[in-house]
Each structure stands twice: as structure tokens, then as C-alpha cells.
Nucleic acid binder design. Sequence first.
DNA 1: TAGATTGTTAATCGATTAACAATC
DNA 2: TAGATTGTTAATCGATTAACAATC
Lengths: 218, 218
Amino acid sequence: MTDEHKPEVSSEPPHRLPPGTAARLSCYLHILMQSAKAGRTFISSQALSEHARVNPTQIRRDLTASGAFGRRGVGYEIDSLIGSIRRIIGAAEVRELALIGAGNLGISIAGCDIYREHGFRITAIFDTDPAKTGVSVAGVPVQPVSEVGDTVGERGIAAAVIAVPAAYAQEAADRLFGNGVRVVLNYSGGLVKAPPGAAVHDINPAEGLLKAMHLCGA
Amino acid sequence: MTDEHKPEVSSEPPHRLPPGTAARLSCYLHILMQSAKAGRTFISSQALSEHARVNPTQIRRDLTASGAFGRRGVGYEIDSLIGSIRRIIGAAEVRELALIGAGNLGISIAGCDIYREHGFRITAIFDTDPAKTGVSVAGVPVQPVSEVGDTVGERGIAAAVIAVPAAYAQEAADRLFGNGVRVVLNYSGGLVKAPPGAAVHDINPAEGLLKAMHLCGA
DNA sequence: TAGATTGTTAATCGATTAACAATC
DNA sequence: TAGATTGTTAATCGATTAACAATC
């Protein structure tokens, strides 16, 4: 009955975004980056809504919650909005990312702008194929998988992406988890068990396809 | 006030799954396929829950809604469950999929098992690079992009995947929408406007990474 | 029989939407 | 001033969770 949790008092800022909110903010951020590239400087919740496929009221609430504010009658200044969202989802700081697997999928992931937009930088790449060792992918030299533990441990890398065949996914994940990685994005299609304190997110593109089919009634 | 909608009476089965349900079923289906491959024949809602990261009660409700039934004290028979889910999400019939872009990303998409698990078959691939024309990717010959309209129109393909550079995404989408495609899965990172009656789903891997970070408190 | 797990209800929780005054 | 859009409230809706009897 006494107030036993909440050990720290002030050092915990509003970093406790509701579950779905972070995902939506990520989506807004990407749209804003693309709009900025296209030369726009202001955007309304209505215009954001059309691309994000989220209700405008929901968007305004999300933006307010992330500390941004717009101008009534005008909309939101894109650059300032990008800054606010980056701050609230932690994308303002650079976060290192390890990548296991330098095949077609790995190479395309390494070249993907959206990670960079969110503050993630792929700074270590690994592959089992000796022919790939030393080759540079998106400016990062490929290392043998045997070096995952040392590299990730020494550099304190906390998050990683797995892009290996399904059968090797757990093995790759274990190397990561065993050396301090706590977050894994799994493209492999294989099932991966995470130890306590760690989390895996499995990429499933069929979900998105089904969702879009649902939207258009097909 | 009169009952004006609902034009047909009986031919509309319970195909109106709630929005989130189809996505969860897709996720279960993938886990079940992997478990079957590993030689398991039965699975409990608890075991499914650990991989899907969804509450066991929610899972039992979803499965019941999809027409599956388990055995109390035992669990669900995996093969039968796969059948039920496939039927309810429409994955029992084969659905053709066009792919635009045969770069690293496109090649990895064409080889991805998860589409096949969900009944999707990539049966047409296009690329602008003449050097790629005629080359076979995952058993499908690459055609020039100029043939998108004819091929998609003639074969009545309703869904497609875009894996081109962001700057060409709208152009690729327009070729598809102009020829009867109503559902597009967009990997490009570019913003795509869909005409009325069509829907786009944008792949954003950073969302998944943020979600996993949220889960493990990082 | 004993143990385990389903199917289902009831209660809670959070997300979504509609509406509108405030104000740029 | 007139038009547009935000910020915010209140109401609705659907998803999630806890609990437990039914039953394999």
C-alpha cells in the first residue's frame, strides 16, 4: 500500500510514451523528413493524416504530447516538429546498431535511410562467408561472425539487426545477447528466444500486406 | 433509416475480421509454420504467447473467432490450426503479387518464405535496368518496367510490392494503380499517394526497433 | 483421478473519434 | 475581418486482462 515503486524522482522525464505512440511518431517523422526534402516548410495535421493514415485529432494529440506546438490557422513548422519528435523518441542521440548478415537483405538494410532518420547508425557488420570479410558495405567493413562478441561488447552496442537465414537466427541472436545486446530486430523469419531483459521484434511483411488489403476492402 | 446497406445476404462470411486481429493471426501463422517445421504437433496458447508476445487469453479468443478449436488440457493441433487461420485470412487461395525493383531488396523479397506462407506468390518482377531484363529471380524472369501495365492488367494482379529507390516510388505506384492494382506494399521509403479505392502500406523497420526498445525498457 | 488448458464472461484499460472554443 | 487550424474536452469504441468453470 505504501509507495514502494518509483525509486527515482526527477531523472525520469516523460520518456514513458504509450505503446502505440512511439510507433506513430516514428511514422510522422519519416513523412516529415520526406516533406522537408520536397521543399515544404509547414504541414497541417490534416495533410499528415493523409499520409500516415491516422486520424488528425490523434495526430494533434500525439504532437502535443511530444512537446511540439503548432500555429492555429497555419499548421506545424516541419523542421521544428522533426526536432521535437526526434527528442521524444530518443532519435536525437546517435545509437549504434550491429548487423549480422551481409547478403542481399543485409546490404539493403545497411543502405536504408530510415534507420539514419531515427538516429540509428549501422557501425558493425558481420557475415559467415569468408569471401565477404573486409568488403565494405555502406562504408562499413564486414567482419567474420566470430568477432561479434568482442566488437559488440567493447563498443557497448545495445541493439542489432539479424538478416541471416532462418536456421541461423537463434545462433546469431545468442552471440548478441551474450554480449550485452538487449534489442534485436529479426528479419530472418526464424523463431528467436530472448533472455529476460532483452526483446526481439520480428519483421513480418505479410502483416502489412493484409492490413492494406483490409483497408481497401479486398 | 431503412436497411439500405448490406446488399448481399449470405455470401459475406465472417470475413470482417477486426483490424488488429488479421495482423495477429498472420503472426500466429508464421509461428505455427516454424513450429511445425521443428517437428511439433501441438501447441498451447501459453507457448504461442511467448513467441507472439500477445496475451494467452487474447490468443484463445482470436483462435476461437477464426473457427479453430483446441483440446482442453492439451492445446491446439498445429496442422489444423494452420488450416483454420489460412482460411480466415484468405491465405488458403493463392494470390498473385507483382514486384517492382530487382535490386538487393527486391531479390531478398522474392526469396522470402513468409509471403508464400500467407498464400502470396510473386509471379511478375520488373526492373528499369536493361541488364536485368530476362534474368531469373526466384524462378521468375525480370521484365522491363514498361511492361508493368500490360502484365498486371492481363493477369488481373491486384496486389504489388514496390522495392525501388524512394524517388521512383510514386511513378512505380502509378503504373500499378493505373492497371487495376489496389493494394501496394511500399518498401521504398518514398511517399506514395493512393487513388480512392486503393491502399498503400509503408514498411518502416524503425517502428519495430523502437517497439522492441520500449518492451525491454531501453 | 489429477493436472493442465481451453472457452467465455466480466471488468479494465487505452485508443479513437467527434465537436468546438480559442486563436493565428 | 474572415478563413483555417490548433488544442482540448467529452463520448465512444475496441482491445486487453483477470478469473474461473468446463472438460480433455
